[in-house]
Amino acid sequence: MNNKNETLWIAHPLVLEGEHIRLIPLEGQHLEELYEKAADRKLWELVPTDCSQRETFFENYTQALAARDKGIQYPFVIQHKQTGELIGSTRFFEMYEADKKLEIGWSWITQKYWGTAVNLESKLLLMAYCFEVLGVNRVQLKTKDTNIRSRKAIEKIGGVFEGILRKDKIQADGTTRNAAYYSILDTEWEAAKSKINQLIFERE
Results as ranks from 00 to 15, higher is better:
149 R>D: 05
102 L>Y: 03
55 E>L: 14
121 E>F: 07
91 R>I: 00
95 M>F: 10
106 W>G: 13
160 V>D: 14
86 L>N: 02
123 K>V: 04
103 E>L: 05
63 Q>E: 11
59 E>H: 13
148 I>D: 08
77 V>W: 00
63 Q>M: 11
85 E>H: 15
150 S>T: 08
103 E>H: 05
176 T>N: 07
148 I>W: 07
151 R>S: 11
146 T>C: 12
172 A>P: 02
108 W>G: 03
75 P>Q: 07
175 T>L: 10
66 A>S: 09
58 F>I: 00
112 K>I: 01
105 G>D: 04
150 S>Q: 09
98 A>C: 10
88 G>Q: 03
94 E>K: 15
168 D>V: 01
175 T>S: 13
93 F>R: 04
82 Q>E: 15
97 E>W: 10
111 Q>D: 09
170 I>Y: 02
151 R>G: 09
84 G>D: 02
151 R>F: 07
53 Q>T: 11
92 F>R: 08
147 N>M: 08
86 L>C: 00
76 F>S: 01
115 G>S: 09
52 S>H: 13
107 S>V: 12
164 I>S: 10
164 I>T: 02
53 Q>F: 15
164 I>H: 07
69 D>Q: 07
132 E>M: 09
178 N>I: 01
130 C>F: 02
159 G>R: 05
52 S>M: 01
154 I>M: 13
134 L>K: 04
73 Q>M: 14
75 P>G: 09
67 A>I: 01
131 F>Q: 01
118 V>R: 06
116 T>N: 03
159 G>Y: 10
110 T>N: 10
175 T>D: 13
88 G>C: 06
78 I>R: 03
124 L>M: 02
155 E>P: 08
126 L>S: 02
77 V>A: 01
172 A>Q: 09
74 Y>E: 07
121 E>T: 13
146 T>Y: 12
102 L>P: 06
86 L>S: 03
